[in-house]
């Protein structure tokens, strides 16, 4: 049997994957968390293809979200947190876009967003929680009545009910399920059989993948079937949830990927400064996105010296002693 025959229909280029599954106005869920395992190579390709009016749904997101907003790809956002840890406690382009009224946004919490993806994965219409009682998350609706009528937007932000299983007063919050058009993930391993293995924390990636109509996965390595099936307890998603697979080593840079490479402090620091200035940010996009022809070009631009510095200790999972100031 030819190598990768089992996934030959799913293996494709970044360009083909974006062309096939992501359209203007698509609802996209972003995998990863703040500065780890952001699907950056896919993000850059979305920007290069000039996709507009995206509706992004995520919990806590940083770099990929911020670049997408800055590049003008995002119309609408449902989010819990826009930040890149200590490198940008609030993401810069996200902050500007909201302050300048450039995007429609709706605030939830991390747990609430995770539950909404879980509900979507379970194919139930809503999910109860006690999180947020008394908070302004339950006082302000971010989306207007007009937006509420649009595709894949819930008719209201949330609802409240009395717990139907007790006579005592017990308020419960109901949250609408999410079923994004596409979830995009960057992971460590895909087996030749299409099985997905995420190392380190999975965040809400698994719920996000299962809730979506389509899933695009970029990965560091494609590994033999025999390897991925030797220790299936380690695996995260079965093959049938995934529609497109692209091998992109360092595909999460400048965010980190456990066991492979750390986040790039130098790049993230540079980005925070540049993102404050519209002209400089435009140049950044030219330099790091539009003028990049291949992923190899991108890696050459990062440079061998930096890639070696970022290389993770395979036992500890991160780059020990990396200068992270």
């Amino acid at each position: 049997m030819a190598k990768n025959a089992e996934i030959s229909d799913k293996l494709m280029t970044l360009e083909a994957a974006v062309k096939k599954f992501i359209k203007n106005g698509s609802q996209i869920s972003l995998g990863g968390f703040t500065i780890v395992r952001n699907p950056m190579a896919l993000t850059y390709e979305i920007i290069r293809q000039g996709i507009k009016d995206l509706h992004i749904v995520c919990h806590s997101h940083g770099q990929a979200l911020d670049v997408l907003i800055g590049a003008g790809c995002v119309k609408r956002l449902e989010i819990a947190y826009g930040g890149s840890g200590r490198y940008a406690p609030t993401c810069i382009r996200f902050k500007k876009a909201i302050q300048q009224g450039q995007i429609e946004f709706e605030d939830y919490s991390n747990y609430q967003m995770s539950l909404r993806f879980l509900a979507g994965a379970l194919n139930i219409p809503f999910i109860p929680t006690k999180s947020g009682l008394g908070s302004d998350l339950l006082n302000y609706e971010g989306f207007s009545k007009e937006v509420r009528k649009e595709r894949k937007v819930a008719s209201k932000k949330f609802d409240m009910i009395q717990n139907p299983f007790t006579e005592e007063k017990d308020d419960v919050v109901l949250l609408p399920a999410l079923n994004p058009d596409v979830t995009i993930l960057h992971v460590q391993y895909v087996g030749e059989d299409g099985t997905i293995r995420i190392k380190g924390l999975t965040f809400a990636d698994i719920e996000q993948a299962k809730s979506a109509d389509y899933v695009i996965v970029t990965c560091e390595e494609i590994v033999p079937r025999s390897f991925i099936r030797l220790d299936p307890d380690q695996n995260s998603l079965p093959p049938f949830f995934v529609d497109a697979i692209v091998k992109v080593p360092y595909g999460a840079h400048p965010t980190g990927c456990y066991g492979f490479y750390d986040y790039d402090p130098k790049h993230l620091n540079m980005y925070r400064v540049i993102a404050e200035d519209d002209e400089k940010f435009k140049k950044y996009l030219d330099e790091w996105v539009y003028d990049i022809k291949t992923h190899e070009d991108y890696l050459n631009k990062v440079g061998a010296e930096m890639l070696i510095k970022l290389k993770a200790n395979p036992i500890l999972g991160y780059a020990v002693g990396l200068d992270r100031r």
Partner: peptide
């Protein structure tokens, strides 16, 4: 936590743990 994490998703919060899980 041999090195201080710079984000709650930092690779350092996944290293040497008793368990790595997810948000839920």
């Amino acid at each position: 936590l041999d090195e201080i994490p710079m984000a709650v998703s930092d690779l350092r919060v996944m290293s040497g743990t008793c368990l790595n899980s997810g948000l839920i």
